[in-house]
């Protein structure tokens, strides 16, 4: 009881602070000077119609780089925390390597294809939707066939099979979700979206795949390699900006192009695609760590 009164006092004090902040707040009717500077400069200097993406990737590009580093550290530390203890009985291990090894081998081309499709989508505008959809479809078919080839013969820990409706729905939705994720990533400089949002959409597609096929495994090693390379290329583009243009992560070393065209805004679409790949891979790894 005493504790509840104390908590109520704390909440009331916070409430007083917040009430003062609300009381002193008036809705803006013009932009603040810094925002005005960004809004007027970003379309002219960078050639990006979406000013938020311009701020995220260029003006606050260092922040974004630091943030994906934080995300990487979170993926690593979650893996460390949720690592299986070595004290587990050996019998459970003996049966699993055969099945999981088989699945991992089959899952590798799947993910490779999806990633390759996303990388290709970043470069060529024409074939992006088709390629990604095809790769994703091929991926889901491949996972399904392995699932059926290796029936769940694990011991009591074997997850329950998803129902017919869930599996069929996943087959229809998964290509759409991956295509939408790729679209959001590569159109970040033109419309709402960008690397973070698209990466999250792709990760939620991966989540759906894991939900519908509880037995399938994700190739975490390949995902780690992909996201490490994305990080290296991200920093490499930043250094290119330092050498060829005004500063670290300055995207103006590539031509600005026509305002509002798909290939425009210098290196912003490239950086956005790398960011999307990195965020998508890291979030997928975090989900998989929690699942296993």
């Amino acid at each position: 009881m005493m504790r509840h009164i104390l908590v109520a006092v704390i909440v009331v004090l916070f409430g007083l602070i917040f009430a003062r902040m609300v009381g002193g707040y008036v809705e803006l009717d013009a932009l603040r000077p810094l925002a005005l500077d960004y809004v007027t400069r970003a379309p002219v200097e960078l050639g990006t119609p979406n000013i938020i993406t311009g701020i995220l990737i260029t003006y606050r590009g260092f922040d974004t780089l630091g943030e994906v580093a934080v995300l990487f550290m979170v993926a690593a530390s979650v893996g460390l925390l949720l690592k299986k203890d070595d004290a587990k009985p050996a019998s459970a291990k003996v049966s699993s390597p055969k099945v999981s090894g088989e699945k991992t081998a089959a899952a590798k081309p799947v993910l490779a294809k999806t990633e390759a499709a996303r990388a290709a989508a970043a470069r060529s505008a024409a074939a992006k939707a088709n390629a990604s959809a095809r790769a994703a479809t091929a991926g889901s078919v491949a996972v399904k066939s392995t699932k059926e080839a290796a029936p769940a013969e694990d011991d009591e820990a074997a997850p329950r099979e998803a129902s017919e409706i869930v599996r069929t729905g996943t087959e229809i939705l998964l290509p759409l979700i991956f295509t939408f994720g790729a679209y959001v990533i590569v159109n970040g400089h033109l419309s709402a979206g960008g690397g973070f949002q698209g990466g999250a959409v792709v990760a939620s597609g991966v989540m759906l795949m894991l939900l519908a096929r509880p037995g399938s495994t994700l190739n975490v090693a390949l995902l780690s390699i992909i996201e490490s390379f994305a990080g290296v290329f991200y920093v490499g583009l930043g250094i290119l900006g330092l050498v060829l243009a005004g500063g670290f992560l300055d995207p103006r070393f590539l031509p600005k192009g026509e305002f509002g065209a798909f290939i425009s805004a210098g290196a912003i679409p490239l950086i956005s695609a790398l960011l999307g790949i990195k965020v998508g891979a890291e979030l997928s790894v975090i989900i998989d760590r929690f699942r296993s």
């Binding site: 803006l28 932009l31 603040r32 810094l34 925002a35 960004y38 809004v39 000013i51 938020i52 701020i55 995220l56 606050r60 922040d63 974004t64 943030e67 934080v70 995300l71 979170v74 530390s77 979650v78 925390l81 960008g194 973070f196 949002q197 999250a200 965020v279 979030l283 975090i286 929690f290």
Partner: peptide
């Protein structure tokens, strides 16, 4: 509208998920 809070919140959401995961 002011784009700076939006840009900050996009990163804050991702960091919020990371903190929750840890």
């Amino acid at each position: 509208i002011d784009p700076i809070p939006s840009a900050l919140v996009v990163t804050a959401i991702v960091i919020g998920l990371s903190v929750t995961a840890v």
